[in-house]
């Protein structure tokens, strides 16, 4: 809008016509003074973008320093509304949460983005998989950095999730009313490990192949469901119909296993993990925000249990 008006102002001198300042332009009466005013107004708007209609239409709240609009700014934003508007002053401190939940989430986000980029180059087939990794390492611009980041972020996430669990335990944050959220967290921990494990096979190199072979060989020994497990043979299990076969899509780690690992790794498990994370964050909010640092309670203050 602003641009087209400025262009109009510039073109006026070449098409002069008429009296008392107004000119005829393509059959329109144009007042240069008025146009200048409008141009100045637009310039002012550019200097203060937060006052424009465009800004307001996106953020829905006025941008000023009042507590009210800061609160609304958080509450009326999809990405920020996971947060409460205000938090306990102490809960912001690093020493209480160690920031590990948030860091795990950020790492998950990094993994999603680097993972999507890797998917552009990777084919889950026996012929191509290993070559794709070589291609990523040697030819794709920043391909090596991309692969390294995905790998190390995965390792880091496994570590930060465990540390998060450790802190939640030490602060007793799983106690009432947060029992269920702890259980959701345990599922997230398992999903994180599974994500990492399924990704291990994808480069189709010796490291992944043997790690997955060792890992899935244990599935052979599942009681009742594996052909080498207790009571497995009695249940009619053979290498060709037990759980290991279901996991690998075959009796050895081969093309089908690669495809299955790929689908679990890129679609199914991230989907589950994202879903449980939504529940997890929702419950953190619903359970009254972060648990503390709470006022310490004395033994003499324990209330009798009501069942």
């Amino acid at each position: 809008m602003a641009v087209s008006k400025k262009a109009a102002t510039k073109s006026t001198p070449s098409a002069t016509n008429g009296s008392n300042g107004s000119r005829q332009l393509l059959g329109l009466t144009v007042d240069p003074q008025e146009i200048k005013q409008k141009a100045l107004m637009d310039l002012k708007a550019i200097k203060q973008p937060t006052k424009t209609e465009v800004y307001k239409s996106i953020f829905r709240v006025k941008h000023d320093q009042t507590a009210r609009s800061r609160t609304l700014g958080v509450l009326s934003n999809v990405f920020l509304h996971l947060h409460p508007a205000r938090v306990n002053r102490d809960a912001v401190r690093f020493s209480f949460t160690w920031g590990m939940g948030g860091i795990s989430f950020y790492l998950f986000w990094v993994l999603t983005w680097t993972g999507v980029l890797l998917m552009f180059y990777y084919h889950p087939t026996k012929v191509q998989a290993f070559r794709d990794i070589l291609y990523l390492e040697h030819d794709v611009p920043f391909g090596k950095l991309l692969r390294n980041m995905h790998r190390w972020a995965a390792h880091a996430m496994v570590l930060t999730v465990q540390l998060h669990m450790f802190r939640v335990f030490l602060t007793g944050s799983y106690k009432k009313p947060r029992q269920f959220n702890w259980s959701v967290g345990v599922i997230l921990l398992v999903l994180t490990l599974l994500l990492s494990f399924t990704g291990y096979l994808l480069p189709d190199d010796q490291l992944g192949f043997w790690a997955v072979t060792v890992g899935t060989n244990m599935a052979r020994a599942t009681p009742m469901l594996g052909h080498e497990g207790p009571f497995g043979p009695q249940f009619g299990m053979t290498p060709f119909n037990d759980v290991r076969f279901a996991l690998l899509g075959g009796s050895i780690v081969d093309a089908n296993a690669l495809l299955r690992a790929y689908i679990w790794h890129c679609i199914a498990i991230p989907g589950f993990a994202a879903t449980f994370m939504i529940v997890h964050f929702w419950r953190v909010r619903k359970d009254g925000g972060i648990s503390g640092p709470n006022r310490i309670m004395l033994e003499s203050e324990i209330k009798p249990l009501r069942r």
């Binding site: 602060t171 007793g172 106690k175 009432k176 640092p293 310490i296 309670m297 324990i302």
Partner: peptide, 9 residues
């Protein structure tokens, strides 16, 4: 144990 809910102890 209801103690230690939300603080290190």
């Amino acid at each position: 144990n209801p103690l230690g809910n939300g603080y290190y102890t």
